[in-house]
């Protein structure tokens, strides 16, 4: 009887029609799932795209508005220009009252740094200073040595028509140290120089002084009466060696902040466009 039961049950088979309708049903259902899933995936596209745009926008913002180098300009007005990796000025900060006034009076934000520099040097307050035979110290500060070197060359080029202009470059740590003392980098460098000669000098003492006054003070304290330093001493020797006699103007000691760059021919230390 077992066999009879088995044979009888074995006679029951699924109709092909039933199998086929099941296959059609499943194809439709799984197709729906795929369609739904596809729709879900597609729905994510604008979300992902928006997020990508936001991230790219934020990244771009960070890249564009982050200064990678600083140009410090000191006459008596002391101000600093933050320059991004695209050579555009993204920040202008005055470090004393005159500097803040100068920063407010010029419209250099987002301009190329060479144009910005031209505008600042051509501004009334700077021109007045220069007429009084004041000294302009321009320093390029950044971590990228080659970029700073390139900027320095460009700055030298655009300041070549201005007298009493000194150019130099340094690294970002020096700028941070300068800011801690409330000084722009140009004045900080002069302060270090001055402190070598007079350890009692304080940052506050030079904050209100013009660069000419500071340089005159340095010259007086160093006992060097020479009014001028022949340009040849700075430019004629590509080796960058500075005669010890010139220490009044061009300290060799890197610790004094003149450790990188130069105005002409890649010299390290200070360079200038002459006491014309």
């Amino acid at each position: 009887m077992n066999d009879k039961l088995k044979e009888a049950f074995g006679e029951i088979r699924a109709e092909e029609q039933l199998k086929e309708s099941t296959r059609r049903f499943l194809a439709q259902k799984t197709g729906d799932v795929r369609k739904y899933r596809g729709w879900g995936y597609k729905r994510l596209i604008p979300v992902v795209a928006s997020m990508a745009i936001l991230v790219a926008g934020w990244g771009g913002y960070q890249v564009y508005f982050k200064p990678v180098s600083v140009i410090s300009i000191d006459v008596n007005p002391s101000l600093e220009l933050g320059v991004n990796r695209f050579d555009r000025v993204v920040s202008v900060k005055g470090f004393n009252e005159d500097g803040r006034k100068l920063a407010d009076s010029v419209n250099v934000k987002y301009a190329e740094y060479t144009d910005a520099l031209e505008e600042i040097l051509s501004s009334d307050s700077v021109r007045r200073c220069l007429r009084r035979d004041e000294v302009v110290a321009i320093d390029v500060v950044g971590d990228d040595e080659s970029a700073c070197g390139r900027m320095l060359t460009n700055i030298e080029h655009c300041t070549s028509g201005h007298r009493n202009t000194y150019c130099g470059s340094s690294n970002i740590e020096d700028v941070e140290a300068a800011h801690e003392l409330g000084l722009s980098y140009g004045k900080y460098r002069a302060y270090l120089e001055l402190r070598e000669l007079d350890p009692d000098v304080m940052p506050e003492d030079i904050q209100g002084m013009t660069m000419r006054e500071i340089r005159d003070l340095i010259e007086r304290l160093s006992g060097d009466d020479s009014e001028e330093i022949p340009e040849d001493d700075f430019q004629g020797d590509d080796s960058g060696e500075i005669p010890e006699d010139d220490s009044g103007e061009i300290p060799e000691d890197d610790s004094q902040g003149m450790n990188q760059g130069g105005c002409r021919g890649g010299h390290h230390g200070w360079g200038h466009h002459g006491w014309e």
Partner: peptide, 23 residues
């Protein structure tokens, strides 16, 4: 399919229900 069909036969009495069960 045959197993499912036999179980449908044991429990149910019509083809339409079997179709539902298959699905």
């Amino acid at each position: 399919a045959d197993t499912v069909r036999r179980l449908c036969m044991i429990h149910l009495k019509n083809y339409a229900d079997a179709e539902d069960i298959f699905q």
